[in-house]
């Protein structure tokens, strides 16, 4: 561009370029808030976990090996990038998550907008299983409005985007055995013990009944825990308990067909 005739516009454009700058500098946080999902780390019974936040609340929780590992998994699953939560953007939520992971009864808002209606119903049911209790797949299926869909429930548990917050480790096989867990069945046993559940007591005899009330319960139902050892009758299925003359508990609602 040695033509003298065009030197002036070039100079003018370069001068102009130097004078155009974003008024507020580069608003990195603002851009990222709209374009990526934020995440933070938290301590849990599974060790350090990372937590990604969607519009409505926690969207994903994962005990990844590293931030990078977490970011990659999140992108593979949700097609979005994460960036570290800034300032007090998610401070309230992070506090709730920390308390919930420490075993306190806190309601943590979840963003399950990417889940199907069936998945959402199942996750919602499982979210309600109290610490210290377990429920079989067949019960979750019935409570979610799809009796008999035990296997589908198992799939939802295997892909639970928010483990611990939706305590899928409290869902056991229909015969009371612990069953599998996304992070290993050993971890599942350890988590349940930490919550006061003895998996081997339930395995094979997931239901208990007592002649004093004539009621059959899930073995970990709060009513069942009050039964004196000498009054305790263990059952492999609700059906066998019903045949022996017991009625299903109205609190833990064991599935009569199970």
């Amino acid at each position: 561009m040695n033509e003298p005739s065009v030197e002036r516009p070039i100079l003018l454009l370069r001068e102009t370029a130097a004078r155009i700058a974003p008024v507020r500098g580069t608003p990195v946080d603002e851009v990222l808030a709209g374009a990526t999902d934020s995440f933070f780390a938290a301590e849990s019974p599974l060790g350090t976990v990372y937590v990604a936040v969607g519009q409505e609340g926690v969207r994903y929780l994962d005990p990844a090996d590293s931030e990078e590992d977490f970011a990659r998994r999140y992108r593979r699953r949700f097609g979005r990038f994460v960036s570290p939560a800034q300032g007090d953007e998610v401070a309230g939520l992070a506090e709730k998550v920390a308390s919930a992971l420490a075993g306190e009864r806190v309601d943590v808002p979840l963003d399950l907008s990417r889940a199907t209606p069936f998945q959402r119903r199942v996750l919602h049911v499982v979210k309600g299983i109290a610490r210290g209790e377990v429920r079989p797949y067949v019960w979750v299926a019935r409570e979610a409005g799809t009796p008999g869909a035990s296997r589908a429930v198992g799939n939802v548990m295997a892909n639970n985007p928010v483990p611990l917050l939706v305590p899928c480790h409290r869902v056991v096989r229909n015969d009371g055995s612990t069953g599998s867990y996304a992070f290993g069945s050993g971890e599942k046993v350890r988590l349940l013990r930490g919550e006061g559940v003895e998996p081997e007591e339930i395995s094979g005899s997931p239901y208990v009944a007592t002649p004093t009330t004539g009621i059959v319960c899930h073995a970990t139902c709060r009513n069942a825990r009050r039964i004196q050892p000498y009054n305790r009758r263990a059952f492999r299925s609700v059906r066998s308990a019903v045949e022996a003359g017991y009625r299903p508990c109205k609190v833990c609602r064991p599935v009569a067909a199970a």
């Binding site: 990195v28 990222l32 931030e67 977490f70 990659r72 960036s83 570290p84």
Partner: peptide, 16 residues
């Protein structure tokens, strides 16, 4: 590779 700082770096590098 999942560097969580990378999205911010992209914004910083090209925003202006």
């Amino acid at each position: 590779e999942g560097d969580p700082q990378a999205p911010g770096s992209l914004v910083k590098r090209h925003y202006a």
